[in-house]
Amino acid sequence: MAAAAAAGAGPEMVRGQVFDVGPRYTNLSYIGEGAYGMVCSAYDNVNKVRVAIKKISPFEHQTYCQRTLREIKILLRFRHENIIGINDIIRAPTIEQMKDVYIVQDLMETDLYKLLKTQHLSNDHICYFLYQILRGLKYIHSANVLHRDLKPSNLLLNTTCDLKICDFGLARVADPDHDHTGFLTEYVATRWYRAPEIMLNSKGYTKSIDIWSVGCILAEMLSNRPIFPGKHYLDQLNHILGILGSPSQEDLNCIINLKARNYLLSLPHKNKVPWNRLFPNADSKALDLLDKMLTFNPHKRIEVEQALAHPYLEQYYDPSDEPIAEAPFKFDMELDDLPKEKLKELIFEETARFQPGYRS
């Protein structure tokens, strides 16, 4: 834990890192770190609560700039109880001085990944967590956004079992017609939660990839272990087919990539493993919904509104309290091709509203 900075004593240090967030945020305490930044909790002297502050230093890398800009653009436009918001952003007053960006968010005690390492969940908890994931996802999908990296560590939890989806750095506007060349190379989302079509096709992607990830998360809540822990690309596919069985001819016809289709045709026939054999203690309604989410063919996979209306979630289902976005989200430009200098300018502009004396 960093010592509390005395008023006016300059930035606090946390594990050798400068955290320049005073005077409003003090009493910093280390939480963890990701690929390009550290997260601390801090005391907000204005709202009198502890908050989470993520320090991001992305400006050396085009990919990190892209992810940072995506996350900020999306989260500043989203407003939903099951999606983490941005409360404040701290950065230098000029673009030349801006080396880091500090993002202030609600402090959540833990995440689903940490929880599943230590606790076996009751059916009631599984049901409530799944409902909140789908409630947040309904809003995301209504904005025409794909999260693309749903996994237990991106689901934040607090002691009252509130759940918030975080990390929109890989999110995209849904565009089933656009052929994202190089899709697989830039697709760094965790393999275990990846839909089979991501490994088999490169053309376009749809909201059904997020539903697949939610199915993987439900299976993990039922058993405290990942359902498809593939060691590499082909191993991942083999794990999936080992449980779902061989795809039907109709399902194979959806695979545009001939090499991928021929690979699947070359494999020995596998039978589907019954879900109640894998999860003998699970609620039968939970397994019915799991089956509809972990469907090989993305066109037959359940959609988020149908999933919310499934009998497993009937005690929570309330369409009048499951809000959607006001308007579909649009990125003005494809960020993939922009140089990091341009992305830095866009991050600077996007964060201006939090600067003292800002006038829109």
Rank of each mutant, 00 (worst) to 15 (best):
Y128W: 13
P323V: 15
M38V: 06
V273Q: 14
K342E: 04
L265P: 04
E341I: 15
Q119T: 13
P311Y: 09
L346S: 08
F329L: 00
V145W: 05
P152G: 11
T351V: 10
R79G: 04
A35V: 02
N27D: 07
N224R: 06
S360T: 07
K99L: 15
L163Y: 06
Y30E: 10
Y312I: 08
R194I: 00
D100L: 12
L252Q: 01
E350D: 00
N238S: 05
F348H: 11
A309V: 13
A4I: 15
A9H: 13
I217R: 02
S208N: 11
V145D: 07
G169V: 01
V39N: 05
I86T: 15
Q105T: 13
T94K: 11
T94L: 08
N82M: 11
A52S: 01
Y102D: 02
T68I: 09
H141D: 10
S57A: 14
D149Y: 00
K330E: 05
S153D: 14
R67E: 02
V49N: 14
L244S: 05
T68Q: 11
T68S: 00
T26I: 01
M293T: 11
C216A: 06
L75N: 15
D235F: 03
I243N: 05
N27R: 08
N27W: 11
N82Y: 00
P196Y: 03
P311F: 11
D332T: 08
R225I: 12
K138Y: 09
Q97C: 11
V21N: 07
K344V: 10
C127D: 10
L222D: 02
L346Q: 01
L134I: 11
W192D: 03
L75Y: 15
L157I: 09
Y36P: 04
L244N: 12
Y193L: 01
K270G: 09
P339D: 05
P298K: 05
T160M: 11
D179Q: 07
A219W: 01
A174F: 14
I103C: 06
N123L: 09
E220I: 03
Q66W: 03
I256R: 08
Q97S: 12
Q17H: 01
I165A: 06
P328W: 09
K330L: 13
Q132W: 13
G230E: 13
V39C: 12
R148W: 03
T295L: 09
Q236R: 05
V214T: 09
S284E: 10
N154T: 01
D283V: 02
D162Q: 15
P311E: 11
F354M: 03
N297A: 12
Q236K: 01
Y263Q: 08
N47H: 07
K285L: 06
N253H: 07
R15N: 09
I56F: 00
R50I: 15
L146Q: 01
N27G: 07
P356G: 11
H232V: 08
G230M: 10
E303L: 15
L346N: 09
E71A: 10
I31V: 15
V18C: 14
A307L: 11
L222H: 11
D332W: 14
R353D: 08
D177C: 12
L234N: 10
S213Q: 04
C127F: 01
A282V: 10
D336F: 15
A325L: 11
E33Q: 13
P58S: 04
T26E: 07
V46G: 10
R70Q: 04
Y128G: 11
S266Y: 13
R50D: 12
L258D: 09
L121H: 09
L237P: 02
Y263F: 00
V51W: 13
A52N: 08
K285W: 11
T185Y: 04
F168S: 01
P93Q: 00
R70K: 04
N224S: 02
L338A: 08
V46Q: 13
S213F: 04
L107N: 08
